[in-house]
Design a protein around this nucleic acid. Structure first.
Lengths: 199, 199
DNA sequence: GACTGCCATCCTACCAGAAGGTAGGTAGAG
DNA sequence: CTCTACCTACCTTCTGGTAGGATGGCAGTC
């Protein structure tokens, strides 16, 4: 039933983990070929160029992310819990070795040398994530659930930046726990104990 | 008087800006040769291998950073102002095009594919910066200048993560102002208005 | 069912250029 | 005479990418 062969997905999954490890210039078609068990040229059949590969990869990542956030919205209505689910999702990803970094955050750091088409996708993810966080914070503030120091937009940007920075620190220290140490108080601060008891 | 020729410094400065743009795998000896106006082979005279080049580059960066922080310590005794100087330093770097990213933060994102020797220097910078921030926050808390939610160490990690994430966001949005939007409230939060009037 | 053409997948074999790096030489300063 | 800084010329390996062929499944048609 799947309209895309498993090989194509394997290539994408492999490229994803390679990008997570070393960014756009940190891997080659040969690396993917080795892991997937296919010849270099065969990858070009599925993705004519490296730009094609990474662009579709990031586009799909964005879709998944947006679907994930929509799902959070669907199953949890409390803004604080929504942010908690988001933070704990990454905490889990970083704790097991599966995906210890957001590929868009990683690629954003090399934006100046990224192919334009890839860069556009990366920027779009930032806008989309920031928009969601802003809406959550806005709603939370309206309901008196959050105690915001500045505007929802600014708080959203700060939240996103801290999460991304926490990923970086966890990687730098080689210690997954750092992520939780940084992001835990982040939620705590948005909704101090006094607000924890729901009306 | 300088025990290192200007060429050597030129190479380092050039490599630095190239790394800021695209990380370890984002530049080549040929790129440096083009900019500095020298042949590829001549770079090998100053830095036998790429690892040598980047290791000394990061080592020097660390030295400069530590000297800079020591200097802050020397000229400003107020902890809040110290953090302010640090934050505004980066704000200025990002605002003009000079150095819109901390090379250690950038390199940390590609840590898994970095040569070990370079990785060690990068990690060392994180530890050193975190130690300084911790000491500043500790002192500030003792003096009743800061209102800390968690331990000085945790607050320091959060501060550092947020600054790094703010660099990333500024780059992703292509808008230097984002850095200030994120880091401004960060200081504001540590020392609320009520504490601003010094005893 | 057998024949046929088509298309997707994967292959071997190749290419040009870029990568990091080496060998060996020259010019000038001390 | 030596040492530093730089050069030309070259090497190997990797890079993303191409050309063209083998295989094999799946229509449609007789």
């Amino acid at each position: 039933m799947s309209n895309l062969s498993t090989t194509s997905d394997d290539i994408l999954a492999c490229a994803r983990s390679l990008i997570v490890a070393g960014g756009y210039n940190g891997f080659s078609y040969a690396d993917i070929a080795d892991v997937v068990g296919i010849r270099k040229a065969s990858i070009h059949h599925h993705f004519p160029s490296k730009v094609d590969l990474v662009r579709t990869l990031v586009a799909r990542y964005r879709e998944e992310a947006e679907a994930g956030l929509a799902n959070v919205e669907l199953h949890e209505s409390d803004p604080l819990e929504q942010l908690g689910i988001y933070a704990r999702y990454w905490e889990a990803c970083i704790a097991d070795v599966s995906a210890p970094f957001c590929i868009c955050a990683l690629l954003a750091s090399e934006l100046p040398v990224l192919p334009e088409e890839v860069g556009l996708e990366v920027r779009a993810h930032f806008r989309s994530l920031s928009a969601w966080l802003t809406s959550v914070l806005e709603r939370g503030a309206r309901r008196g659930r959050f105690q915001l120091v500045s505007t929802p937009r600014a708080e959203a940007e700060a939240f996103m930046a801290t999460v991304h920075g926490a990923m970086l620190s966890a990687r730098a220290y080689g210690d997954p726990k750092v992520f939780g140490v940084v992001t835990g108080p982040l939620l705590e601060r948005l909704a101090p104990r006094s607000l924890q008891i729901r009306p």
